[in-house]
Design a protein around this nucleic acid. Structure first.
Lengths: 201, 201
DNA sequence: GACTTTATAGAACGATCGTTCGTTAGTGTC
DNA sequence: GACACTAACGAACGATCGTTCTATAAAGTC
């Protein structure tokens, strides 16, 4: 890795953590330069524009997500176990990757959802990709015979996302110590309602 | 209503709609003055500080929410019907109140969840109040004998919030026409799983 | 070690930020 | 019609914004 690539990565690291706290939109080149002990212009040269920097942060986030959440889960045998692992990784991946301020992309989704442009597109594609992966994982739990073949997979993913969002809000805004437990309870109910063998409780 | 109060309200209207699109944090006094055809200083005088303006927007949002979502539902007889009405009002209250960019407070929750200060506190209190109202409404559906007496009400509200968040993301970011249907499906499943008489499908 | 390429710094740009000040215009009261 | 009070303005403040230059220092290549 050349010198340039190295500092670029260092900048990105700092930008990543900063964006997690204040949002991608509120990133400032001046402040970022201060934190990385560089000149504004020196830092700027690595990206060419603020928007490009923001995009880089979003891509960085996506890459780490794939590394920390998806990859480990996809190494497990397909089926409910893999799905469950993926969801659990997802629920607290921001801890695993040292993101003090929560998922950058998820926050950006609300920030840019009605501001057309490259940033919004990047966010959209990221989240769309995640949904596809989740959908495939659910589909495979159908193939293994653990989930019913007639389930609405889109609906299933929709509800998974709901669980994630609710968990994040409880954890981050309300510091709720029960957030994890609630998330798992919701997930279990979701699975139970779509399992092949209906289990009375 | 005096002249001052009148323009203050006009400013707030514009700020409200603007904040819904770009976020409370990105509000700018200069831009806001332009849009309301006032001078920056004239506008500024009504609030004294930017933060006070932002707080006013959050309070405005809370007031409208109570008016449009809670009040109509609370006039219905207590029980599942009221709960359902409340949730339905909640799900698209931003349309009813002409908020092109989605709920201001909900967006602010993600924006400020790790930035301590008055804004965060205001958001937190708003959402906490909503949760309390929802919890009471659920509790009354237990009293009427429609929901089981042993249910975990906090968990129920947790999942309601998940449904809301998922619906908003599907609608706003992905322009999903099925968002409403999915939300109702999730709500019905939630109710069914906690109803007094377990209904096989 | 000379040479080319890359990386960083420094200074300045015009624009916008939130805020302050002094002043003018408008409104309501006696 | 004089008076007090409120509402709005215009100009300016210092700070910061993203960006563009030009120049210097470092790294990589032969």
């Amino acid at each position: 890795m050349g010198k340039g690539e190295q500092t670029r990565q260092a900048i990105l690291d700092e930008a990543f953590s900063m964006a997690s706290r204040i949002g991608v939109g509120a990133l400032s080149i001046g402040v970022l330069a201060e934190r990385t002990r560089m000149s504004k212009s020196g830092l700027f040269a690595h990206f060419g524009s603020k928007e490009e920097l923001q995009l880089a942060v979003l891509r960085e986030s996506q890459a780490r997500f794939a590394e920390v959440v998806l990859r480990p889960a996809l190494r497990l045998p397909r089926g409910l176990g893999r799905l469950r692992a993926m969801v659990i990784n997802w629920l607290d991946w921001t801890r695993a990757v040292n993101l003090p301020g929560g998922c950058v992309i998820n926050a950006a989704a609300l920030e840019f959802d009605d501001q057309p442009g490259p940033l919004r597109d990047e966010v959209k594609n990221s989240l769309l990709a995640l949904r596809r992966t989740l959908a495939e994982t659910v589909a495979k739990a159908v193939e293994t015979g653990e989930l019913r073949p007639d389930i609405d997979i889109e609906q299933f993913v929709f509800e998974l996302n709901g669980i994630y969002q609710a968990t994040q809000q409880n954890r981050r805004l309300f510091s709720d110590p029960d957030a994890d437990r609630r998330a798992l309870a919701a997930f279990d109910r979701l699975v139970r309602d779509h399992a092949v063998i209906p289990q009375k409780e």
